[in-house]
Design a protein around this nucleic acid. Sequence first.
RNA 1: GGUGGGUUGGCCGAGAGGCGAGGCAACGGACUGCAAAUCCGUCUACACGGGUUCAAAUCCCGUACCCACCUCCA
Length: 474
Amino acid sequence: MTFRLYDTQTREVRDFVPLQEGKAGLYVCGLTVQSEPHVGHVRSGVNFDVLQRWLRHLGYDVTFIRNITDVDDKILAKSAEQGRPWYNLAYAMHRELDRAYDALNVAPPTYEPAATGHVPEMVELIQELVERGHAYAADDGSGDVYFDVRSWPSYGELTHQAIDDMEAAADADPRGKRDPRDFALWKGHKESEPATASWPSPWGRGRPGWHIECSAMAGKYLGAAFDIHGGGVDLRFPHHENEQAQSRAAGRPFATYWMHNAWITTAGEKMSKSLGNTLSIPAILERYRGIELRYYLVAAHYRSHVEFSFEALDEAAAGFRRVEGFLERAEEALRASGTPEHLGSVPPAFVHAMNDDLGTPAAVAAIHDAVRVGNRLLAEGSHERLSEVLGAVQSMLEILGLNPASPVWAGSGGAAADEKLSAAVDALVSGLLEERARARDAKDWARADAIRDQIKAAGIEVTDTPTGPTWTVG
RNA sequence: GGUGGGUUGGCCGAGAGGCGAGGCAACGGACUGCAAAUCCGUCUACACGGGUUCAAAUCCCGUACCCACCUCCA
């Protein structure tokens, strides 16, 4: 079975046929770095990271471009409010975003171009559009350049809308537009804005409109035609519609497939409008591990709307710990019995699920199925088969970016220090456990439980296993 | 006004004409000195009203409610 994905434009699940055999070009709209990243932002990152990993697993040579918008109206407005340079705000938030991606094991793309680094490419593209008669400089002296929507007959093809049915934005500033739906390719510099946020152009100093950057950067790094373009649902219109219109109007075929991830909301409310800080990634990571949050995000299909709640996140974390528990016990059992660990092959159910438009919920179910089988084998002591199942579980987790053994999860706060601490605790706890073992041998249960309670009071859980007691923090 | 999406068991969350995803929680049993973990079992749902079909959560028609986008929110 080949990889199939849902294409927003054709509104159907289609076979993935790359433009070049064995290669996949992927462009994803990253963030406008204007505030701390929240769960919603990161969902997009995780979703497309899974896509990228799956394409690689299928053997494609993937070129993955994810941009950063580092100058726009909001960044300028916020930085002015905060009394700091816009580039400082954008840079700080960009670093914050990188930390969030790292914490969730979202692999860096092939390249992460920033809008401010590609003004010449944008100017070139705009000039081409002007020459072809699809763009015009406003005649109100503003220095703005607009895309002429009426000049492009297939405008609206991505979202299946007719220009005349579109509601003209009530608050849109008509300025020098010929049609209210025309959008800015270039924005002339305004006195109220910092001079540092302007660049030279044939139409005077100014800064790029939003949509043009993606067309210019996708063209530069992926070529005039590429395979997949992704982003959040909200970007379908106007952003992606405009990107496609301006690219095609410039003679570039642009993306073959359009993928859009759904929202995360809280109590039905869009995250961008609500709660800002409490659901920022740093805030959530104070309560949950990155791998647990990633599991929560991966367990839902990327096109399904997710209503965020800490209860649901708790459940997801509990479900994931079940998988982790199996990994730990299986690895220990194999080590103890000297059974070699197999490199796991990925079960057909998992492959089928992933090939079907990245069916991560079914893929996660396949992991749980394997874990159940593995737990049974563990109980039976069938170590040879257990080794195979363990390998399969590890491979599946690895593809989803959820393998706890992966070094990326090894504590962002100093793994070496953790290890030392762990060794120290182990030395202290093992003394107590020896005492408890003596009490248990003497069937002095009260004494044995008292020791266990004492250890527990320190925040350490003791569990008896067939091979002796173990302890875990928390 | 235009364009889309949704409504599934106690909860989360898949599926898209016939074999009851999976997880969490709960309950019963096994194992255990007791726990924990694990295993076995139980709990049989698809907003509402019609229709098509041998067969509908799934297709069609209608109704209700919710949500997103319509010029710069992932």
